[in-house]
Simulated assay, not measured.
Amino acid sequence: MPALDTVQRDTPYGSAFLDDASQLLAMRTLLRKVESVSLDPVKSRNFIHRLAKEV
């Protein structure tokens, strides 16, 4: 059975469902890029606490 991959993309104008192989590849690539620059949970929490103290 082939993989059942679908991406739901929400916009101010409604939702779009992407299931084309090239669209899914683009979304996976984007997700990998975002994950590569994201902080881990501990660093993220520390960053948020530091910002909250500055406000």
Rank of each mutant, 00 (worst) to 15 (best):
R45E: 11
K33D: 10
S22W: 06
L51F: 05
S36I: 13
P12H: 03
L51E: 14
L18H: 02
V34C: 05
L39G: 05
D19Q: 08
D40L: 09
K33L: 14
A21V: 02
T6M: 03
S22V: 01
K53R: 13
S15Q: 11
H49A: 15
P12T: 00
V55S: 10
A16S: 10
V42S: 11
N46M: 09
M1V: 07
S44F: 13
F17Q: 05
R28E: 06
Y13Q: 12
S44K: 12
G14R: 06
R45G: 06
M27G: 02
I48E: 12
P41C: 04
A52W: 02
S38Q: 06
S44D: 15
A21D: 02
M27N: 04
R28V: 03
L31P: 02
T6R: 08
L4T: 07
V42W: 05
V42L: 12
K33Y: 13
M1P: 15
Y13G: 08
F47W: 05
E54A: 15
V34A: 10
L31V: 11
G14H: 04
R50F: 12
V37M: 07
K43T: 11
R50S: 09
L30E: 09
V34K: 06
K43P: 04
L24H: 01
G14V: 04
I48R: 15
Y13I: 04
E54M: 10
P12E: 13
M27A: 13
A26H: 09
S44Q: 14
R9M: 10
S36Y: 09
N46E: 14
P41Y: 03
G14W: 00
A52K: 13
K43V: 06
F17C: 04
P2A: 11
M27E: 11
T11L: 07
L51N: 09
V42R: 07
L18V: 01
K33E: 09
R9W: 01
Q8R: 13
